[in-house]
Structures are given as structure tokens and as C-alpha cells.
Design a protein around this nucleic acid. Structure first.
Lengths: 214, 214
DNA sequence: TAGATTGTTAATCGATTAACAATC
DNA sequence: TAGATTGTTAATCGATTAACAATC
């Protein structure tokens, strides 16, 4: 029964539903229909109902959806009711920024450590956590049951580091290195290729300019 | 003739082609067939040819594609042969990290300024650029022909700031604020919702665990 | 020329939207 | 009960893959 694979297109929309439902909840709104949500979120009501029904019915005919209940159920689907031990690999600009900025604890992510291979950074405190040498990373992952590694290292070392993480039992990699990691399919990888994203933006800027010169 | 709209699915793949072709070029490889590229990139040869042919034929029958030529043509499509004036709005952790980390100049993005509304940051140097007060932002955008604004401010002010940017002629917004901006359709927005991305990762981790407990 | 590989049309697959019966 | 709105099936749309004629 768990066997109907849910498409990544649907998964990709869940965090946005979650965000909007959280806002509605904070505003004290108790119920919402797919049509009302459609108006707010600018997606079709049909898609909203299809998406939710991938996970079983959360609504009630003639009534709609209970905001708080739906919010919590989507949170569970996304795994936000569980905690996830997380480390950051690479204490450069981006690694430090993510540690300070992401507010991991809010969603059940427990920031357990940060690693780098630059001795100048060893011991420096980032979010109350001392930067540790890369050499300690493998044992740390095993001994602290780390689920998720955030890769903010240059692409030259990322592939190799990813392999070590896999060998030591990592479950998922949040990859900011500009390279495709080659890991077994049971290891989840979520890529954040920032420069790719910026290129898409410039494409669309230029496309729009061209369209209007015709 | 420019009228066949190219799908965002195709656009989303262009930066990855560009990256692989750049690597092949650096390795000194001169020609490649769609089948060889397919093997390396793990997408179908058919998709590769379809994607490229959205922009007119870059290849030669019986021969394949010239790596350097293809690399340059895709670069042009992505607008990387042009320069784009860019500012960062929000000099917090993430804004600073992007300024230092992104190497904007490499792809023709010219980092023109960084703004914040925290007086403690005014004048601080970030990538040889002094942080300016938010109040100066609007005039700066107009007077310096800024094309792209990178939004790394809290979501509470992002919507309002985006409106000001639009009023002063911005063309595109690279949005890291966790909110959907409401701008005219001629303004391009590329969202980077980092927490959404992290939630997708946890979904996939949990999904995999569940699949294996059945 | 023969072989290779593109460019492009056709077939398939999957995702989105529409419609409506079920039901609260 | 009547009205509203979901859950779900059917229809449409778009994207991917397969096939092959064109051609270098």
C-alpha cells in the first residue's frame, strides 16, 4: 500500500503548502477549502486536492480542510515531527552563514558539528560549536548518528568527502558543491546549485527583453 | 520566430549542460556525440538532442557536437556573454556569504553594492564594498542601472523591498527570502527557498526508510 | 561511398486540469 | 434536506523517449 511512488513534482510543492498553512494557522484561521487555498497560492484547486490525496484524504466533504490538522499532517509527511542530526562540512563563508542563518532547531534539525580542513579555523566558534578538523569527521558521523551532512566545500573535494560520508552511514546530503555526487541510490541527495539558479534568472531576463523587441 | 516559448524544464537543464561542457572543454575534448554526453550526464541522448534543438541545431550529422562551440552557444543563451549589474540587499550572514563566495565576476555579474538597514553594518567592507543604508537603495538602483537584486533579508520586509526595486527598474530578483514575491510578470524572480529544499531532503530520507521496513 | 549521428516526427508516458459522483 | 466541497475518475496537456529519414 506504501507502494504508489509519489512524484517529486508533488513533493516539491509540499513545503510551500506547509508554509502557507502555517501562516493561516498563525492568523487563527481554522478551516479552508481547496478553492480558497487556490486563490491564495495561485495553483488550481484541482491540483491541491490531487496532491493531498496522494497521502490519503485530509479533508471533509462539504466542509473543506482543517488548517491546523492539515498543517501537522504535511509536517509529518516532510519528517518535521522527527529530529535529524546534522553536520556542516566546510566552515567557509557559506557553511558559517548556513549555521547562523538557517535556524535548524526550529524544524527539528540538530546542529551537531562543523568541520573544515583549514587549521586556521580549528576551534573557532560557530553557533556555539567549535570547528573540528576534517580528519575527525568520519568517526564523528558514526558515533553521533548523523543523518544529514551539509556539503559547503569546493567541488574538488566534494565527491571524495561524499563517499566517506556514505561509508560512515549518512542518510542524506544537502549538496552546495557545484558537482554531481555519485552515491548509491539509497542515499538521498538534494542539490542546491546556486550558480545554476542565477543562470536561470539571467536566461529569463534576456528572454523577456528579446520578446519585447519583436 | 522567437515565439515558440521554451519550457522551464529545458531551461533548468541548460546550466548543467553548460557545466559539463565546460569540464570537457577544460579536458581538451573537442567533439562529443549526444550518446557520449548521455553516458556522462545520465540523461537520454534523445533528450539532449531535443533540448539543443529548441535553440536551433548546434551539431553536425555524422559527427556530433563541437564542445567549445556548444559551450559558448549555451553560455550565450544563458546570457553569460553579457554583463549584469547586481546588488545584494541584506548584509547579514547569507548576504555576506554570497558576496564572498559566489565569484560573481567570473560569469559577468558585476557586484555593485550591498545594503542593509542595520546602522552597525554601515561602512563595513564586504568584498571591497562598503555596506550602504537601505535608504540609498532606490536611487542607487536607478542611477547605476542595476539589473539584478539579491534579496537576503527577512521575509517581513522582502515584499515591500521587492516593490521598491520594481519601481526603480530592476529586471530580476534572486530571492532568498522565504516568501513569494508579488511582482509584475515582466520582472523575473528566481526563488531559492533553502528550507524548502531541506524539507524535500528529509521527505526522501524518510520515504526510503519506510520503503525498506515493508 | 558507407557509417555515424544529428534533427525531427511520432509514440509514449506522466502530470495537470476538468468534471462529477460521493458524502459530510 | 439542500448546499458545499471533497475524493476520484476521465480528459487534456505537456514533456520525455523512441524511431528514423536526412545528411555530413
Amino acid at each position: 500500500m506504501e507502494n504508489k511512488e509519489i512524484s517529486q513534482a508533488v513533493i516539491g510543492r509540499l513545503p510551500r503548502y506547509f508554509r502557507y498553512l502555517g501562516e493561516l494557522k498563525d492568523e487563527g484561521i481554522e478551516r479552508i477549502s481547496s478553492q480558497e487555498l487556490s486563490d491564495i497560492m495561485q495553483v488550481t484547486a484541482s491540483q491541491i486536492r490531487q496532491d493531498f490525496n496522494n497521502f490519503g484524504g485530509f479533508g471533509q466533504q462539504g466542509y473543506g480542510y482543517k488548517v491546523e490538522y492539515l498543517y501537522e499532517e504535511i509536517g509529518k509527511i516532510l519528517g518535521l515531527d522527527k529530529t535529524h542530526n546534522l553536520i556542516i562540512i566546510g566552515a567557509g563563508n557559506l557553511g558559517q552563514a548556513l549555521a547562523n542563518y538557517m535556524n535548524f532547531e526550529r524544524r527539528g534539525f540538530i546542529f551537531k558539528g562543523i568541520f573544515d580542513n583549514n587549521p586556521a579555523l580549528f576551534g573557532r566558534k560557530i553557533k556555539d560549536m567549535e570547528v573540528k578538523p576534517m580528519g575527525e569527521m568520519e568517526a564523528f558521523v558514526r558515533e553521533n548518528e548523523i543523518d544529514i551532512a551539509v556539503l559547503t566545500i569546493p567541488k574538488t573535494s566534494a565527491v571524495e568527502v561524499a563517499e566517506k560520508l556514505v561509508q560512515n552511514g549518512i542518510k542524506g546530503i544537502w549538496n552546495f558543491a557545484h558537482v554531481d555526487l555519485n552515491v548509491p541510490k539509497e542515499i538521498q541527495v538534494e542539490n542546491v546549485h546556486l550558480s545554476d539558479s542565477l543562470m536561470k534568472l539571467t536566461y529569463n531576463i534576456i528572454r523577456f527583453e528579446n520578446e519585447n523587441n519583436n
